[in-house]
Amino acid sequence: MVKRTALHATLVIGAFVSVFPYLLVVLTALKTQRQLSSTQPWLPALPPTLANLGHVLRSGFAGYLAHSVLMTAALTVGQLVFTTFAAYAFARLRFRGRDVLFWLYVATMMVPSAVTMIPLFLIMRELHLINTWWGLLAPYLLGTPYGIFLMRQFFRALPAGLEDAARIDGAGPLTILVRIVLPLSRPAMGTLAIITVISTWNNFMWPLIITSGDDTKVVTVGIAGLKGAIGVDPNLMTAAGLIALLPMVAIFVAFQRYIVRSVVLTGLK
């Protein structure tokens, strides 16, 4: 009983530490400047106000939110399509240098993103893609090493006899992939989609570097832009953070079962 009580107390403390920053975001976003300076940060505002949320949305943040949704949707679809084709080729098709090419590509995961940021920017500048949607999407649209590695390992775990039986019936590689392999790969594809949505929505450095106008600015860059010349307005920044947080919370509530399954599948537990 003592061990179980200590374990649950530890879990409760850990959960509180994890949730407390999000609670502060909600409480601060619903306070006025006067309430923020006259009350403790962890106490709710009485009465709460939605003025900060309305001010942020009227300042153009709604457009940034739409840009993030569009970017996330495009990159998720691109990842699922191109990553699946590449992973299936590395897992099942036989061609010269397949394994060497695969492991060289996977080895790029060990290279910090800061190392490739400047070369990527120079490439986009030569292609005249600065401050364009193509420049924003191009580095991630055709797949990532982690996504290809994840799908390849899942494809290799599928029974080869299913594909052999389909091949005997006259099915080609594309038919086998679409009609047999993909229906069996929904857990892995769900994992890849969840990881892509979260990483894309939270991506900050590349959108900050490649975009400069409001036509392509996303939520993360928009939040950073709320910092004024004379300092930070915590009410507005936390209101913007709350608006950016709500879609991720909605996704978690709606797809909680698949998120737990993705954690088990990828071994992140």
Rank of each mutant, 00 (worst) to 15 (best):
I210K: 00
S18A: 15
V17K: 06
Q33F: 07
L142A: 12
R167P: 10
G190W: 07
W134Y: 11
P183F: 11
I251R: 05
P21F: 02
L129W: 12
V178Y: 09
W134M: 06
T116H: 01
H55G: 11
V69F: 10
A166F: 12
A9Q: 08
T200F: 03
F149A: 01
P183C: 05
V197M: 13
A160V: 08
P234E: 03
V178H: 10
L242E: 02
Q35N: 01
V100I: 13
I209N: 02
A6G: 10
V25T: 09
R96T: 14
T144H: 03
A66S: 13
V111D: 00
L24H: 02
T216V: 10
A91G: 09
L162Y: 10
H67E: 01
A86N: 08
P145C: 08
T108P: 09
L53E: 06
L57V: 07
L122H: 04
P183N: 09
L174G: 03
T28P: 06
F16S: 05
L245A: 14
T238L: 02
A9P: 02
A107G: 10
G78I: 00
V197L: 12
T5R: 15
T200E: 07
P247Q: 11
L93S: 04
A45P: 02
L127V: 04
V232H: 08
T28E: 01
D169F: 06
P47N: 12
L141H: 00
G172W: 14
N131M: 02
T211H: 06
G97R: 14
A114Y: 12
G54N: 07
I243S: 03
T49Y: 06
M151A: 14
A254H: 02
W201H: 04
K217N: 07
V106D: 06
D99W: 10
M189R: 14
W133G: 08
Y88S: 04
H8R: 13
L265T: 05
Y140C: 03
V115I: 15
I209T: 12
T72P: 13
H8E: 13
A107V: 04
L27Y: 11
G63Y: 05
T10K: 10
A91V: 04
S212D: 05
L129V: 10
Y258I: 09
R94Q: 08
A244G: 15
H8V: 12
D215P: 01
V219C: 00
D99F: 09
K31R: 15
F121L: 15
D164M: 07
F90S: 00
F85W: 05
I210T: 00
G78H: 00
L70K: 04
Q79G: 15
S18Q: 14
R152L: 01
T28M: 09
G190D: 09
A138N: 07
G228V: 05
L174V: 14
R179M: 12
G14H: 09
